[in-house]
Design a binder for these strands. Structure first.
Length: 453
RNA sequence: GUGGGUGUAGCUCAGCGGUAGAGCGCCGGACUGUGGCUCCGGAAGUCGCGGGUUCGAACCCCGUCAUCCACCCCA
């Protein structure tokens, strides 16, 4: 039996076309993140297993890719390392370790792959990129406002107009559950059920709540709190006697007020049914929704206790993560990529003839063009001209430079624009400058007449 | 992890017990220094894999793997 030809389950190869599109999105993300003053960070793919376990909740724990200990572990099954599950926990570890070397307020971005042993589905892979921004050291709502603004900027720059940033607060949720009489031990179970309100409706959520062990009076008290799409103000009055929850409501009101002066303002929406699965969130939680994707484009929240799990002393922190693969799925389906992202890897193809001198001439021409900053591909062997044109067209190379016996005798290069079909003779001596000056695009642009000689 | 669909040529798919097919792409030619248009010709498939039923299986049955969709969960 031959070796498998496909990558491992949930993993993918990226062909040049894919890489170009990924790079385009990453470049936009990176550019926006930098404008907000975030600094780059990279961490190892592998972490010690204790670093990751117990940080993500029960579901998350199961999805961690574990690595057998080298040597004995291969027979005993013992694991000591794991592939990172997200970029937030590694950041918390780094902050704990390098606390003294980092500024009082540390803002970092990180664009790297993470791994989850999930079942693959549309927009879900076992290896995928996250684009994280996190701000460490401040409990101010200004942090949340800036994070929301940054991701809103990214999505708008990429051409998204119809996304919604759903916002909620862990302490608001806790307050509502307390108010309805759900015992604290069942808060997690209740949140999982409530998170489905959009999909299964109030009756469905009610059934699931009871199935999860929440008694009928609590369910009946709980459902109206969520089904009515309560406004923040109303919620504040309802939770006025619960100081923590009331403060959380006030915090969200502050976030909305602050966001009035950022690009996130029009996209923010309070949603009491947003829960989010990761267990380390302690405050505001956010998630980005678009109509044509069941999952989210990204999510985030405040996690004031996570760094303390490494350091023994809490440091406030808040972050937002964009899912590169999710963004790419939607952009691909909607055709949102600019045309130039999909152009080939070269600007010019230099042809070759079977006349003895052509190879040296072709390489020399390529060198001069490359020195002028032009991306050049040289057809590697003598062939019929038609084949060479066909190759250029298939490879997405716009110009073909022909230098055969005729051209050499005249000291020129024939340059053909594959998009318009037009061609002209350009002096060999000035060819590099002619290209880098953009003359190729201007003078050979489509003008109605085809194939002028 | 649960339920369902689909695996046939490079790609999209037809065939659904009786000789393996089409379109597109690819290669060659008409066109010996010009791609796209047209015409002619050609190559190409253990019909996902393993077993079973049958005189005979791409087709029916069982298993398995892959993939897609809906749940679950998430980026």
């Amino acid at each position: 039996m031959s070796a498998p030809i496909r990558p491992a389950r949930g993993m993918r190869d990226f062909l040049p076309h894919d890489v170009r599109r990924r790079d385009y999105v990453i470049r936009v993300v990176e550019d926006v993140y930098r404008r907000y003053g975030f600094q780059p960070l990279e961490t190892p793919a592998l972490e010690n297993i204790e670093t990751l376990t117990g940080k993500y909740g029960e579901e998350g724990n199961k999805l961690i890719f574990k690595v057998l200990r080298r040597g004995e572990g291969e027979t005993s099954g013992e694991t000591d390392l794991a592939l990172r599950y997200d970029l937030t926990v590694p950041l918390a570890r780094v902050v704990a370790e390098h606390r003294g070397a980092l500024p009082k307020f540390f803002k970092r971005y990180q664009i790297q792959p993470v791994w989850r042993a999930d079942r693959p589905a549309r927009g879900r892979f076992r290896e995928f990129y996250q684009c994280d921004v996190d701000a460490i050291g401040s409990a101010s709502m200004v942090v949340e406002a800036e994070l929301c603004a940054a991701v809103a900027d990214v999505l708008q720059r990429l051409g998204f107009r119809d996304f919604v940033i759903r916002v909620n607060h862990r302490l608001v949720l806790a307050g509502l559950l307390d108010h309805a009489g759900v015992p604290p031990a069942l808060h997690g179970a209740a949140l999982v059920a409530l998170d489905k309100l959009d999909k299964v409706g109030p009756d469905g959520v009610g059934n699931e709540l009871q199935a999860r062990g929440i008694d009928r009076p609590a369910v009946e008290a709980l459902l109206p709190l969520f089904a009515g799409r309560m406004e923040l103000g109303e919620l504040g009055r309802l939770l006025a006697t619960r100081p923590e929850a009331a403060a959380a409501v006030a915090g969200l009101e502050k976030l909305f007020a602050l966001s009035g002066s950022t690009s996130a303002g029009p996209y923010l929406r309070f949603d009491a049914s947003l829960a989010r699965g990761l267990s380390y969130y302690t405050g505001a939680i956010m998630e980005i929704a678009v109509p044509d994707l069941a999952g989210s484009l990204g999510g985030g929240g405040r996690y004031d206790g996570l760094i303390g799990m490494f350091l023994g002393q809490d440091i406030p922190a808040c972050g937002f993560s964009l899912g590169l693969e999710r963004i790419l799925v939607v952009m691909t389906e909607r055709g949102m990529f600019p045309a130039d992202v999909d152009t080939g890897g070269a600007d010019v193809l230099v042809t070759q003839f079977d006349d003895g001198e052509s190879a040296e001439e072709a390489l020399g021409l390529a060198r001069d063009l490359r020195e002028a900053g032009v991306r050049v591909d040289v057809y590697p062997e003598p062939d019929k001209l038609g084949k060479q044109f066909k190759y250029a067209a298939a490879a997405g190379v716009r110009h073909v430079a022909i230098m055969g016996g005729d051209e050499r005798a005249r000291g020129v290069v024939t340059v053909k624009d594959m998009t318009s079909g037009q061609q002209r003779a350009v002096p060999r001596a000035g060819i590099g400058q002619w290209f880098s000056a953009g003359a190729a695009h201007q003078e050979l642009a489509p003008s109605g007449s085809e194939d002028q000689e």
